[in-house]
């Protein structure tokens, strides 16, 4: 076992870890964004978010490696497919649950996750696959700091997506309608917002975000039906950041991604796997509302 003191900190090593931590954190952040989006608009918690990402990665794999579409066509095709699947899921499974307790919805999405995993296993099989992308393999060498193109794309893609979402919520009518629907279903309905259609849209957007996450992460990790378990860590990220806050989701993801990388190198084995959950429990103890708090105590 090697501990921090015995190794000493090397600046370049720390920087390298930071970069891979950020890239991993971006993936967590993207999935967390999907969680938060659904939660913000519908107050439902989607435990199957990670599995939606898995499905997105598999669709991208099918389009690129099986149907041999070029990447710039496969990318929007995957997003469109996932958007349709997201909207369908909402329509068929979640809509009957409007007005039911949170707990039921939570359980329902857990069940949905199991179903998606079984379906993916049935269609694509259980052996891991890798996605071929036009940018695979290349690296940038910055005076010894090595950044793979894949990691660059993850970081840049996340940043672009965040900007897009910010603009969407800030300036579009649909974005405002989503915020309204989440704050008070009934009132939003009364002022003429088609709450049900808004919900379908939210699920479609959230599924597309996880599809993007799936495409981004596929070149660095392999695609298999169990890759969706990353979703649990993303969940931790969402809570650390403050559930219901979009920037919080990304920040939480980055924190967890970076800590995980450092724990993997400087702490005994096993710590890296649990560090996300330790951070989560610590956060819930110290500041349960998360970094960017958006909760308040319920008033009568």
């Amino acid at each position: 076992m090697q501990f921090a003191l015995a190794r000493g900190f090397h600046f370049l090593e720390v920087l390298q870890l930071l970069v891979s931590g950020i890239s991993q954190g971006c993936v967590y952040g993207l999935i967390a964004l999907g969680f938060v989006l659904i939660y913000k608009a519908t107050e439902m918690v989607n435990f199957a978010q990670g599995d939606l990402m898995m499905l997105g990665a598999f669709f991208a794999y099918s389009y690129i490696n099986i149907f041999e579409l070029p990447f710039y066509l496969a990318f929007p095709a995957t997003i469109l497919t996932m958007a349709i699947i997201g909207a369908l899921t909402e329509r068929l499974l979640l809509r009957p649950m409007i007005g039911e307790p949170h707990f039921s919805v939570l359980m329902l999405t857990i069940g949905l996750g199991f179903i998606l995993r079984a379906v993916a296993g049935a269609i694509w099989g259980n052996e891991p696959r890798s996605l071929s992308t036009p940018y695979a393999g290349g690296v940038i060498d910055l005076n010894g700091l090595i950044i793979g193109y894949e990691n660059m794309v993850i970081i840049l893609g996340t940043a672009a997506l965040c900007l897009l979402l910010y603009l969407f919520f800030r300036f579009t009518r649909l974005g405002l309608a989503m915020q309204a629907a989440s704050q008070n279903q009934l009132a939003a309905f009364y002022v003429g917002i088609p709450v049900k259609r808004v919900y379908s849209m939210v699920w479609a957007i959230s599924a597309s975000i996880s599809a993007v996450a799936g495409i981004l992460v596929a070149p660095v990790s392999l695609i298999d039906p169990l890759m969706g378990f990353v979703g649990i860590k993303a969940f931790a990220a969402a809570i650390v950041g403050g559930f219901g806050s979009l920037p919080g989701a990304i920040v939480g993801g980055l924190i967890i991604g970076i800590v995980e990388q450092f724990a993997g190198l400087y702490l005994p084995p096993g710590f890296s796997d649990v560090s996300a959950y330790v951070i989560l429990l610590a956060m819930l103890l110290i500041r349960p509302q998360g970094i960017f708090a958006s909760m308040q105590r319920k008033k009568v």
Binding site: T42, E43, I98, G99, S182, N184, Q185, M295, Q296
Partner: peptide, 8 residues
């Protein structure tokens, strides 16, 4: 059924 009102 109860309709949703956020606590956020």
């Amino acid at each position: 059924r109860s309709y949703l009102r956020t606590e956020r």
